[in-house]
Design a protein around this nucleic acid. Sequence first.
DNA 1: AGGAAATCTTGGCGCTGACAAGATTGGAGG
DNA 2: CCTCCAATCTTGTCAGCGCCAAGATTTCCT
Lengths: 188, 188
Amino acid sequence: MPYHHGDLRRALLDTALTAIEEHGPVALSLRDVARRAGVSHAAPTHHFGDKTGLLTALAAEGWTMLADALAATAQRDPRFSELGVTYVVFATSHPAHFAVMRAPGLVRSDDPELVAAQKRAADHLRSGAARHPDPRAAEDPLTAVAGWALVHGLAALIVEGSIAPEPDVETLARAVAGRLGPAPVTNR
Amino acid sequence: MPYHHGDLRRALLDTALTAIEEHGPVALSLRDVARRAGVSHAAPTHHFGDKTGLLTALAAEGWTMLADALAATAQRDPRFSELGVTYVVFATSHPAHFAVMRAPGLVRSDDPELVAAQKRAADHLRSGAARHPDPRAAEDPLTAVAGWALVHGLAALIVEGSIAPEPDVETLARAVAGRLGPAPVTNR
DNA sequence: AGGAAATCTTGGCGCTGACAAGATTGGAGG
DNA sequence: CCTCCAATCTTGTCAGCGCCAAGATTTCCT
């Protein structure tokens, strides 16, 4: 057992992820993570400063992974609704990351790396909205906001258990994402 | 100072709400709530069992308040988009309640009272969706799901600070909620 | 080779949530 | 009126937690 671990930082992040999947991000304990990783109770502090630092690192990682997934989807299929599918699929297939990303008060929301990663994901949604099949929706900047809200909310409600993903996550997400349209002509 | 408080339960809930508004639901401490309320550190335990019990009570209260607000709006204005406005306005004007309602792993999500309150709010959205101006959307059960996701996501992103409520919460919510339409005729 | 820097451990402090046991109070029945 | 019981709140205690300080060990740079 070497004194130096090799890549303890990565190992701690992975250990934290499995712990979060088991008991949620709120119940996460630095000492428990350290125990599972086989190091002393103060080892995580050195790598992340404090508990918020670890969670912030996980959130930034999550937004980065999501932005990458959105980029890959945009290259494969230009339709906006497919970005929405990718968003929801990411949330349900990486529940630990997504839980940290959206939990209130767990992370340092002004962390530069976190802000940059989240902005990158938002930008992919924005440019995806500009490719909406309906030109009236494509040229409206509000389409990106509404689209983001739509898929973020769907992902959140599914993860919370408020909405059942039937028949499956991908099909439901595709159907819901397709409901986004232009502003109605008559507003009254 | 009487030994019996009168309505300590209500006082503890209110104290917890202000504490949550200050430092978020995750940082809530039962002992701090007890201190602020001027009672012993074990008093909250008697009323709520444990910390999760207090948070669950707050979440149930929040869903009840939201359901009431939706019911009042539905009576005043039958349009589905107005329900969405009420949803988002509730979230931003009761941030402590909404934070507890959507935070992962803070509450006992199978609590009967909580489940009932949440179902009541969801039912209001469902019947509101059935009054969508476009008959194709009104008769589709997916409209309610998409509408709930849309406004829940918008509220969450605003509270997280990811989306700026411009020009103001109500106007933005009305515009976004109006983007919900029927399924597109051509899916390709 | 040798000193500086990075990595990890040991020890300790105050705070927390939960539990157990006791004190105080209000209310129902005689 | 009084007695007993249940509800309410307090005091005391325990293990676990986050965080800080100091020390041990290893690696890296020159």
